[in-house]
Design a protein around this nucleic acid. Sequence first.
DNA 1: CGTGAGTTTGACCAGTTGGTCAAATAGCTA
DNA 2: TAGCTATTTGACCAACTGGTCAAACTCACG
Lengths: 205, 205
Amino acid sequence: MPQDRAPTRIQKKNRAAILEAALNVFSAHGFRGATVDQIATEAGLSKPNLLYYFPSKEAMHEALLAELLDTWLDPLRALDDSGEPLTELLAYVHRKLEMSRDYPRESRLFANEIVQGAPRIYQALSEDLKALVDDKVALLESWMDAGRIARVHPYHLLFSIWSLTQHYADFDVQVRAVLGDEDPFDGADVFLDTLYRRLLSPHPN
Amino acid sequence: MPQDRAPTRIQKKNRAAILEAALNVFSAHGFRGATVDQIATEAGLSKPNLLYYFPSKEAMHEALLAELLDTWLDPLRALDDSGEPLTELLAYVHRKLEMSRDYPRESRLFANEIVQGAPRIYQALSEDLKALVDDKVALLESWMDAGRIARVHPYHLLFSIWSLTQHYADFDVQVRAVLGDEDPFDGADVFLDTLYRRLLSPHPN
DNA sequence: CGTGAGTTTGACCAGTTGGTCAAATAGCTA
DNA sequence: TAGCTATTTGACCAACTGGTCAAACTCACG
């Protein structure tokens, strides 16, 4: 096992290669469907060598999820209470859609974990995620109270943003099978902009 | 292997028990993560007995998916070109949300398959699904041309309905972790109704 | 260039996997 | 109830699984 000191050049390179390979395999097959051999091969290492850097398959998965959850929520954290409400929300939607385009493997890793009941991540959901969401929901409600955006169920508003944007990463195959050659993300960007403008623009009544 | 004649009483009972168990296990763990032993135990049969009814793990999965895809698209097929457009679409959204509430395992089985690249179902997507979608998109476009609903990208409109409704089945754990005790489907029903009314109501400009 | 730490590997292990098979049992019908 | 078919099972198999270990190799640094 690598010591607890500053990582060597080789440790840095191999750890990165392993996490990269693990992300590929876990996101493509889920935790139980992934094999250590497959990850090792993809990382260009022997299996015992891989297990020299991470003590178990579980540990690799954990490392990936821990890193992921933090960056995954950054776009929501960035929702700024001093900005123009509709602009802020549209920017959030845009950022989330960008993440689906640029980090589809991360999105699918997360999707696999949640679809299968989030056995390894439930606590983080009901604590960290919930806390952040509750905080941002308060902001949304203050915007609605002030009549700056239309009143809708704030939790479901957030769910809708997650679902609509992550869909383009998680269900990419299906989207492309239906769309053919057309780029999904160009159309999605326009569509989602329209959708949230119409949903959230303050209503006269 | 059971003969090709009419299924006996025992065959009917056991096949049904196996498919029920297989649905549980596949939807919870994905194809590679599911084990034949687990399915057999859950169906109350021994493993060899299970393999007497289905020749392989693959065959069970196939049987489930084949049955699923058909019923899964029924709500879309029911979109009626002689109805009132907005009413028809809201009814479609409502039916899809109901399916997420009443058949979450089926939704997750499908989600698992798609997230992992649809290796066993891609052909059906790019043929049957695409054909049906193309057909219904033509209907949507005719409604938009006639100014009976607002003009949006029709494919992304359908994607949005799939994603928003299936989210409540596939990401159920996450939704409940955030919402706490509140019933997700009550709020979702109202939210989605509002969303699609605002998105699709014909606009003056 | 020697030496100790860091790295890599082949051989191995016990448990699990999907699947087979012959033999035993249960069910049905003449 | 005899005899045939349908059903069930224990024992088994080869391949694969996650993981271990001692021995070998490589590297950085004095």
